[in-house]
Write a protein that binds this DNA or RNA. Sequence first.
DNA 1: ACCGAAGACTTCAACACTAAAGTTAGAACC
DNA 2: GGTTCTAACTTTAGTGTTGAAGTCTTCGGT
Lengths: 191, 191
Amino acid sequence: MAETTEPGGPTGPSGPEEPTLDEQIAAYQREFRDLDPQVEKVVSALGRLNRRMNVAYGRQVAALGISNAEWEVLKTLVLAGKPYRLGPGELAKRLGLTPAAMTHRIDRMAGEGLVTRDRDENNRVRVIVELTDEGRTKWLEAMEMATDFEEDLLQDLTPDERGSLGEMLIRLLRRVEHAQPDAGGRLTDLD
Amino acid sequence: MAETTEPGGPTGPSGPEEPTLDEQIAAYQREFRDLDPQVEKVVSALGRLNRRMNVAYGRQVAALGISNAEWEVLKTLVLAGKPYRLGPGELAKRLGLTPAAMTHRIDRMAGEGLVTRDRDENNRVRVIVELTDEGRTKWLEAMEMATDFEEDLLQDLTPDERGSLGEMLIRLLRRVEHAQPDAGGRLTDLD
DNA sequence: ACCGAAGACTTCAACACTAAAGTTAGAACC
DNA sequence: GGTTCTAACTTTAGTGTTGAAGTCTTCGGT
């Protein structure tokens, strides 16, 4: 409830509250002098936004009976274009996973009928993972939900604002990609 | 030189390449008509940017001998303000973890001397996790690296641009928070 | 052709997280 | 004052991921 944390009385049965974004920035400034609040605002908002969005995506695809992880695989295969085929190694690289994790994920998805796993005829070392029709249908359903959600998310922004937001994000992206040439980028952690 | 099954001829010795952001959007438009490229640009850039940033953060804190996950805990405790104390349950809620995961994470961090774990004197059901001096020092070191990185990241943006970027992100954040009142927001998946 | 080396995936052991059941201290009630 | 309820944390079982070792196909030298 909208009650400020009252120190002193044994009033509050509830603990401390999660800080809002502004409170968080104020707290950092208190604890760490050398901080540009404008920079921190952008970075913190980016982080929070992405976390919330991932939670939202996760819930949506869960309604289709697939996990966020599986959806990522479907997206990657579709992005590869027809005939929607990639090897486990390539998939792993694009998804930022180890080959071992990829093997297991493909196992699962093949068991669910979302993809097939076959050896390459011409080179029997290689394995080919291919999207099934069912997998493509799932992708399409997820994509429809996702785009609806994304449209709604950006609803408050004018076309001009959308354009300049996208342009600025891409500039940031370029900068981080230039500084970090993707050398074995494992995601140590989640968000 | 067994070429990968590549439609379009023996183009190159290397396999298919990871799509750039523009290629990705073009591919989605090819596969999925009902797509606003401007929206997709914003969303895709957001996702990629966050992924790269997390990899970067992970590498930086790894240099200090801690994981990204541990850094999150340190940040949360510092944000709580002096005397840098929170219960496992509250920590779990703020980090989006289950209490079980929190127990184990605290175990580890207590073993490393980053936090202490004690029972509350007044209420022996509760446990208090408190940042140690060493933990606070780690946080400070990580914070210095992080802010340097963030300053560098935003270097190409003018102060006006930074302001409007932050403002727009906060608008998006509000929208997603309004739509999703954080009802048990578990991160089903990472990225 | 044969043998060694490299590449691509899989298997194995260890670790981290989730969901659900279990434990224990404090509160509420009669 | 004892029984039951609730809250806060821990333990257990199962899933998913990493890093390292293992397997099997293909390539390159002699």
